[in-house]
């Protein structure tokens, strides 16, 4: 099957022409490319989804601490607020926030996660899909399939821009994850292909230019909370798109601009821990606290 991952527009056109979900096209094409039965590819993705789900419980434990000792326990705080019905924005957004924190905090404590697309942004896609499953009583199959759509979006970004913070800043990691999650949410909500395109564009536009400035060079501050905002941004983008709001700038052009923005971003703001929050007095103090300087 002819399906390449160089443009979002081409992917969505293929879904329209075949009158089927993008995820099904991607699964079929990937099975052909990897010379394996569709069932085997699906099963591998299902296992990844199960690993994602298995992160939530340990990631939101009250006594969780990262290896550096800087973070841990915030997913528990958010989860408690949601479960007691005390959070401001209800179970959907609240649920997504605590799950994103849980996966990300588990990563920082040397837990087992799925890079999605990176370890630094590993909480966003799982939080989106797991929360959709819980809130809308979706089947596991629908959720696993939506991960093929999310992956296809990630491949287009990888082919045209970058998924690495060291190359493109946080927009390349949490931004890409947010766009991938937005596409998955729209598909799970039954949105049309054009809505997926608008959601991808909006999610990326809203995080465009975000720098990668980890305190002490560790995947913790501000990465963990950016996973929470990344999934919130995915829901914002999906909600707008599902209401029929179109992105004025098409997704492929947003990806192009993300590449250009990343190219001109100074090295101090690309994972070197020399600028941004890492260079603040508190950021430097925390660095000293961890590494004893």
């Amino acid at each position: 099957m002819e399906l390449n991952y160089h443009s979002i527009e081409a992917l969505l056109n293929a879904a329209k022409e075949n009158n089927c979900r993008l995820s099904q096209l991607v699964l079929t094409q990937q099975a052909e490319q990897m010379e394996l039965p569709e069932q085997e590819i699906y099963e591998k993705m299902r296992q990844n989804y199960q690993v994602m789900a298995s992160c939530i419980q340990p990631g939101s434990a009250p006594d969780l601490k990262s290896t550096s000792g800087l973070t841990g326990g915030d997913a528990y705080r958010m989860r408690t607020a949601v479960e007691q019905g005390k959070n401001l924005t209800g179970p959907l957004l609240g649920g997504a926030l605590y799950r994103a924190l849980a996966v990300s905090e588990l990563n920082a404590s040397m837990g087992r996660i799925v890079a999605a697309p990176t370890a630094g942004s590993c909480g966003i896609v799982p939080a989106a899909v797991l929360t959709m499953q819980e809130q809308y009583k979706l089947t596991e199959r629908e959720c696993v399939m939506s991960l093929f759509t999310a992956s296809a979006v990630g491949m287009v970004i990888a082919n045209n821009a970058s998924l690495a913070g060291a190359q493109g800043g946080c927009q390349a990691e949490c931004g890409s994850a947010s766009a991938m999650a937005a596409a998955a949410i729209v598909e799970l909500a039954g949105g049309a292909p054009d809505m997926i395109g608008s959601a991808i564009a909006t999610a990326l536009k809203n995080i465009l230019g975000l720098v990668c400035d980890p305190v002490a060079g560790l995947v913790e501050i501000p990465c963990i909370k950016r996973n929470a905002s990344g999934v919130a941004g995915a829901f914002v983008a999906a909600e707008l798109a599902l209401a029929g709001i179109r992105s004025a700038i098409p997704a492929d052009e947003v990806i192009w601009s993300m590449k250009k923005v990343g190219d001109v971003m100074p090295a101090a703001l690309k994972e070197t821990a020399e600028g941004g929050l890492a260079a603040t007095p508190t950021g430097k103090m925390l660095h000293g606290q961890v590494f004893g300087e």
């Binding site: 991952y5 991607v26 990937q30 490319q33 990897m34 590819i41 591998k44 993705m45 296992q47 990844n48 690993v51 990262s66 290896t67 588990l106 990563n107 920082a108 404590s109 040397m110 837990g111 087992r112 996660i113 799925v114 890079a115 999605a116 697309p117 990176t118 370890a119 630094g120 590993c122 896609v125 991960l147 093929f148 999310a150 992956s151 296809a152 990630g154 491949m155 990888a158 082919n159 998924l163 991938m180 560790l218 995947v219 913790e220």
Partner: peptide
Amino acid sequence: MNVFDILGPVMIGPSSSHTA
């Protein structure tokens, strides 16, 4: 590149270069 390069690998955090 395939879908599992994007959603994957399953790994122990926090960093693919410093841990995996």
